[in-house]
Design a protein around this nucleic acid. Structure first.
Lengths: 135, 135
DNA sequence: TTGTTAGTTTGTAATGATTACAAGTTTATT
DNA sequence: AATAAACTTGTAATCATTACAAACTAACAA
């Protein structure tokens, strides 16, 4: 996704497409590892020396509110971020700490009658295929 | 559940059944509201003046490790605790902040082939029935 | 163009949940 | 009773996140 298209998408959602915001989203789009605020900040800093950690926080909150991205509290401690806001599950390997995406079926998310679901998080932790074979 | 039976269960799992630990578990057993560390601490303090917040943390970690309870990171910020370790979903009402339990079906937890699931968390947030009707 | 205003960025300081640690206490075992 | 291991407690540190205020930037009107 080009920076121009990212900027257009932000404008469409009523967000000012500042250089910093575009950079954060571009980073998330290109790094599907569900990075933390700190990883994003540290990786973007070399190319944007004036970058502030607070800007990363502000941007992520704005993007999440507008629905462009999704936050994952799959680990206690730090938040992770995902450029894909569509419904899918997340698997955290307790050995290598990798977070994997996986598809979920519609019936997975059946809430009780009368309840209105706004956001669904399916977090599973365990051993991933790689680690299971290596250990 | 009596304190004696709680103590027996702890011993069975290789945990020392101290008065403090039994109190924490007894509290969780009787309060199915998924309380936070601070709520547990504040509520138990009047009857146990020497109680320490650190003991609540230590106890909850020990109980979780042994499988007697479950921790929920359904809200960023504070951890919630649940006396029921069996698989079930949690619904957080974004209006009244109540956390509801709900049943989940077996197919909800289908991880990719080769992956080994150790823990499953299904968190849904939205408006609960009560709040939807009142608003 | 210039001025005005609202929105954004940035750095620093505060907050608040959690963990680290060490000294004291309790429990299980001999 | 003696000993060692486990547990409790209070205090101090840690660390992600938020609050805040000043500087900056973009949009828009006169």
């Amino acid at each position: 996704m080009t920076r121009t298209r990212i900027a257009e998408e932000m404008s469409r959602l009523g967000l000012r497409a500042t250089a910093q915001r575009v950079s954060v989203y571009e980073y998330l789009w290109n790094h599907r590892t569900h990075p933390t605020v700190d990883t994003i900040y540290e990786d973007l800093l070399p190319d944007n020396p004036s970058f502030s950690r607070t800007t990363v926080y502000n941007t992520l909150h704005a993007l999440e509110k507008s629905g462009m991205i999704r936050s994952l509290s799959i680990e206690s401690g730090e938040m992770h971020y995902d450029a894909d806001p569509a419904d899918h599950g997340h698997f955290l390997c307790t050995h290598c700490r990798t977070i994997y995406d996986f598809p979920i079926s519609a019936e997975s998310v059946a809430v009780p009658h009368g309840f209105e679901s706004e956001q669904t998080d399916i977090f599973i932790s365990g051993k991933c295929k790689n680690c299971k074979e290596k250990i």
